[in-house]
Simulated scan of single mutants.
Amino acid sequence: MSAGFAVGDALPSQDFPAERADLVRYAGASGDFNPIHWNERYATSFGLPNVIAHGMFTMATAIRVVTDWAGDPGAVVEYGVRFTRPVVVPDPGSAVITVGGSVTEVDDAGRAHVELTATVDGKTVLAKARAVVRPPTGR
């Protein structure tokens, strides 16, 4: 990242594979053991195409692009998304969440307003994914 934020700055796009084991680990960390996130038979009985990733897992995965770019997870002062479609996680294999972003505004406090794109197989999984990032101390 440069010495200051500028509108149009691109955040490097990253691909994040999500496997069933990742969902089980996330369930343990979050306490969300809903079977739609690990049991294919249960998930499909509710009309889902397969096991789906936790929404918060997807959201947390997407913000990694911002925290990597900023160099400090504590620099993110706001973050929000809208969930547009579930991330289906096959077994065997993985779903690959592709995330990129750009700075859309720099406010009077020098904070970058970042808009993210998050897709799986070219389809948007998060909409209105926006973060506000404070400049590091010394900027």
Rank of each mutant, 00 (worst) to 15 (best):
P35T: 15
T119G: 13
V103R: 10
I36D: 10
D121W: 13
L11T: 04
V76D: 04
T67Q: 02
R130G: 06
A112P: 01
G55C: 05
L11Y: 10
A75T: 02
N50W: 14
A6W: 00
G31Q: 14
A3I: 09
S102M: 08
A70Q: 02
W38P: 00
R85W: 09
D72L: 02
G71I: 03
A60Q: 00
A131Y: 02
G8C: 04
N50A: 15
V24K: 04
V24R: 09
P17A: 05
G138I: 12
S30Q: 07
A3W: 02
A75L: 13
I63A: 03
T124W: 09
A75H: 00
I97W: 11
P136E: 00
E105W: 12
V88S: 08
V66R: 03
V65K: 02
G8R: 08
F57S: 02
L126C: 05
V99Q: 13
T104F: 07
P17D: 12
T61L: 14
V106D: 09
A53G: 06
T137A: 14
R111S: 14
V133A: 00
F46T: 11
A75K: 03
V99L: 09
G122K: 12
H37C: 01
A27R: 12
V77A: 10
R111W: 03
A27D: 05
G93T: 05
G71L: 01
P17S: 05
W69H: 03
E78I: 01
A27V: 08
V51W: 09
F83R: 05
M56H: 02
V66I: 00
A118D: 09
V24Q: 11
L11Q: 03
A112N: 08
V89R: 07
D121S: 15
T117D: 09
D108E: 15
D68T: 13
A127K: 11
A129E: 01
D9M: 13
L11M: 10
V77I: 12
R134W: 03
A70W: 04
G93W: 09
D108H: 15
A27K: 03
W69L: 01
D108C: 10
R82F: 08
A95K: 01
R134S: 11
T67H: 05
V51R: 13
P86G: 14
V51S: 10
R20D: 03
W38C: 05
I63T: 10
V99I: 13
R20Y: 06
P90D: 14
D15C: 07
D32V: 06
V96W: 12
Y42V: 10
H54I: 02
G122S: 15
V96A: 10
